[in-house]
Every structure is written in structure tokens, then in C-alpha cells.
Amino acid sequence: MDSFITTFHIDWKIIIAQAINFGLIFLLIYFFALKPIKKIMSERTTSIEGGLNDAKNNKALLAKTQKEYNEIIVRARTEAHEIFLEGKKEAEDKKKIMIENAKVEVENMILSGKKSLESEKIKIIEEAKGEIVSLVVKATEKLLESHKDENFDKKALEQIKKI
């Protein structure tokens, strides 16, 4: 044993010093390299897994949304078509009603026009009659003034009596 120790210069102080050196290296590697790198690697794994899950969820959500969108589009088209048909029908009904109303109004207008024309006609005739009578009276008066004799008066009276 002594020859072994002297041949290889075994020194317990150096053995301890080397153990301390290794301990330092272990601490440096563990606390400065392995621990932070493992933490970062695990964070990365978590974030990648989260990202993949999100992507999977988003894909499912997208498919669901696409389906809903298609359904909504189909429903909207159907509803739009129904609304269009309904609107068309309503418009046609309104059109018919308006035409009917217009016809009635036109007829009423024609009737009222006819009535007003009749009343104007009667009024004009009445006025014409009055003017004719006054003209006849005036003419008669002038005639009578120009032929002032007894014969004429008698003849005129007789004729008036006949009338």
C-alpha cells in the first residue's frame, strides 16, 4: 500500500481538492445549465402542446362555424326567397287594390264631372232663357213703342189672349 501511495503520489489533500472542484462543476452545471434549460424545455413543450391543442380546437371550431355559416346561409336564402315571394304577393295585392281604387276614383271623377256639366248646362240654359225673355220683352217694348195705335193694341191683346 505504501509503495502504491508513493508510486502514484497519492495525496488526500489533492483528492479532496479534486472532489471540491467536481462539486463546483456539478453545482455550476446543475444550477446554471441543466435546471434553466430543463425549465425552458418544459415551458416550450407546454406551449407547443397548448398550441397544438389550440390549433385542434380552432380547427374544430372552424368546422363548426363553417357548418353553422352554411346552415345560416341556406336558412337566409330560404327566408329571403319566402320574403321575396310574400313581398311579391303583397305588392300584387296592393297593385290590384290601387288599380281598383283608381278605377273607382276615375269613375267618381267622371260622374262628378258629368253632374257639374249638367248643372252648368241647366244653369246656362236658365240664364239663356232669362236673357231671351228679357230680350223678347225689350223687343216687344220697342215694337210697341214704334206702333202706338189702338188697332195694334187690340190685335196684340187678342193675340196675347190666344196665347
Binding site: Q18, N21, I25, L28, F32, A33, P36, S47
Partner: peptide, 25 residues
């Protein structure tokens, strides 16, 4: 040999410090 081991410690210290400082996601 002991002197060389101290150099090893210094090299490891530098490398690990670089790793610790530069460690990013």
C-alpha cells in the same frame, strides 16, 4: 493536474453562464 482542473472549472463556469444568460424559449 490540479491547475488544469481549475481551468476546467473556469471553462465550465463561462459556458454555463453563457447558457444561463442566453437561455430563451
Amino acid at each position: 493536474s490540479l491547475f488544469t482542473t481549475w481551468i476546467v472549472v473556469i471553462i465550465v463556469l463561462i459556458l454555463t453562464l453563457i447558457i444561463k444568460i442566453k437561455a430563451k424559449l
